[in-house]
């Protein structure tokens, strides 16, 4: 063995690792993508697309299918033939329609998808951007009985974390709610009903803005280039094309405007405030923990001291001294601040 063998081995190992795992185009990733694109998965995704079109009263065609699946039209044509042969859909001229059997199938996949998103958001530490991606894979693996067991375990949740209804065991769904944020007039108030999770880049932008279902919003300015609105005390600016992916339900005018615009994160040591509520952004274990600590509407919280490096901050909550990190405190909305006597 000469002295070059060692470095050479290291370089080879590094190259092998690079080719296997490089993001997006690594062999492992390609292999997994190929598995994912197996025929069954592709036709299930197609049925989902047909169902979404039906729900949103759009017309589904081979072209729209090709766009949604990211697959060339020639390949989609074969796929459509297979679906029609299975009596899951029929074509009328250019448009494609689901048969009752196909609708039932599609709803089963959507149920699995939304249940899994709900599960990921409530019971794991995964963040928003991962939910959809993982549910896209899991929906094809979960059998109906597994989906039912999962739903039962979570107390049959009616909605997924994006605000979308989860089809019931018998495949029922409510009529579509909400209108695009872009349709509101200046000054009008509404509650976010749904954040569309596709395309991914737009959804990531919405998440980065800190938007989430149930948030109350008020439009402040609309122009062709941008849409400005207030939500939980913060000013947001979105491009209309992005804002169109936010569905809202208008709020009645007489309902009092929520005044709580601040969070515990702004409380300086020596100040106290009354808790107004927890942000819907804080879910699952984290939410239960904060509630266990007594952070409920009406609780008075005083900031006592800050760590020498600036974070976390210790709060006096119902007699106990509890340290919370900055991003946790930012999920706790408070009323007006006052100095402790």
């Amino acid at each position: 063995m000469n002295e070059l063998t060692g470095p050479l081995l290291a370089v080879l190992a590094a190259l092998a690792i690079y080719f296997l795992f490089r993001p997006g185009r690594g062999w492992l990733e390609r292999w997994r993508r190929r598995l994912r694109l197996s025929d069954r998965v592709l036709s299930e995704d197609a049925l989902k697309h047909l169902y979404h079109c039906e729900y949103e009263q759009r017309v589904a065609t081979v072209q729209s299918l090709s766009g949604a699946l990211g697959t060339p039209v020639e390949k989609v044509a074969g796929l459509v033939q297979r679906i029609e042969a299975g009596e899951l859909a029929t074509s009328e001229g250019a448009s494609l329609r689901l048969t009752p059997k196909g609708r039932e199938y599609a709803l089963r996949i959507i149920r699995a998808h939304r249940l899994w998103e709900r599960y990921l958001s409530e019971e794991t530490g995964l963040k928003e951007p991962d939910w959809h991606k993982r549910a896209e894979q899991q929906e094809h693996r979960l059998t109906s009985s597994e989906a039912d067991a999962l739903a039962a375990r979570m107390g049959n949740p009616p909605f997924d974390p994006h605000g979308d209804p989860i089809p019931t065991q018998r495949g029922q769904l409510p009529p579509r709610r909400g209108q695009p944020l872009t349709s509101l007039a200046v000054g009008e108030r509404a509650r976010i009903a749904h954040l569309e999770d596709e395309p991914e880049a737009v959804y990531a932008q919405l998440v980065a803005e800190g938007l989430h279902p149930l948030m109350a919003v008020q439009l402040t300015h609309v122009s062709a280039e941008r849409i400005c609105f207030r939500a939980e005390g913060e000013e947001h600016v979105l491009a209309p094309i992005v804002a169109a992916n936010v569905a809202v339900v208008p709020l009645p005018r007489e309902q009092p405007v929520e005044e709580s615009l601040e969070t515990l994160a702004v409380l300086e040591p020596g100040q106290e405030a009354t808790v107004v509520g927890l942000s819907p952004n804080c879910r699952g274990l984290e939410r239960r923990r904060l509630m266990d600590l007594g952070l409920l509407p009406g609780t008075v919280v005083a900031a006592e001291m800050r760590s020498p490096v600036g974070d976390p901050t210790a709060f006096r909550i119902r007699g106990a001294l509890i340290a919370l990190r900055g991003e946790q405190a930012a999920n706790i909305r408070i009323g007006s601040r006052r100095q402790v006597a």
């Binding site: 019971e123 794991t124 530490g125 995964l126 923990r289 976390p312 001294l321 509890i322």
Partner: peptide
């Protein structure tokens, strides 16, 4: 590896 495990911070500072 642990990305998916649930997480919730809390730290009590007892008397």
């Amino acid at each position: 590896l642990l990305k998916g495990e649930a997480s919730a911070f809390s730290l009590e500072l007892p008397p």
